[in-house]
Amino acid sequence: MMLVPVTYKGGVYRHNEIMDLIEDVGGYIVQKHVMASEVVLLCFMPKDDVEVLRTAGKPLGGEVIDSPLVGTEIAVVSMSLEIHHLPHPSCDIAEYLRRLGAKSNMVSLARGPGKRIAALNDEERDVINEHDLAIYLLGNFENCIEKKMPFLRRGIDVPIVLCGGPNKEALQRIIDPPVDGYVGNVGRFMHRTKESEELAKLDEVIAEITRVLEKKRIALAKDPISVSPARLMDLIKEKVPRIHEVTSPTPLTVQMDGLRVKLPYDPFAGEIRTIEIEDGIKIGNICELTPSRMRDYIMLKIRPFSETNIVV
């Protein structure tokens, strides 16, 4: 069963029926937002049943939108937490990503600013590597980006999308070895993105991220993971009641090949490992659980079929 990420937007009235439908056809709800009289469901649906959801939502005024960013966790890497980079453009981009279904985390570097002194420490490197993708938001000068980037990307294994002031061709020319995606003309600015051409730039950032993530999805499909992260999310929700006490908006953050479980590692990792998925196969058999560098969360990475010989 092929699951596709979609967003359902509709009224609160009878939205429980929509949630039941998603679960009945084997889909998973990743996140639910209720805003006044509107409800937004970020979910994974079996590909063949998306039309069923669309038809069911129509009488309720609901719409179904393809959202390739649902089920991804993206690191927005900002050079610092100072006014030079925040709230624009870092927050604008992070917020736009969230609107389109991604879970974005802002990673601000301790030694990001400065051409000569820019560096990445081990904690920052590990936190970035826990994500599906990292967007680097750099400044306006070619000279700086060229000098800084080799230090800022050292040890980063996840795909990188680079945003900077110079145009895309210039970014491609100065970055060696190349990164996975480039968006030019999005450097440092000091105003909120609200003009149409600025919003078009944000759309360009999204399009580039989607393209890079699609490439990663294709690579993952060649050696598929042993279980869907969304299925594990549902299972942990069912078997670990303490997850319902977590106040974070996403106690379980779905990634492309894993999950971030927002429970402390020491008391809960063992319990999660022993949860049975199906036919005696436990989470510990097909997943690797490690302590996250982000607080004391648990990082759960699903091993591929080639390693486990299991697909559930």
Partner: peptide, 8 residues
């Protein structure tokens, strides 16, 4: 605020 960051 205007000067590039890191110019301390």
């Amino acid at each position: 605020c205007i000067a590039p960051e890191g110019f301390r």
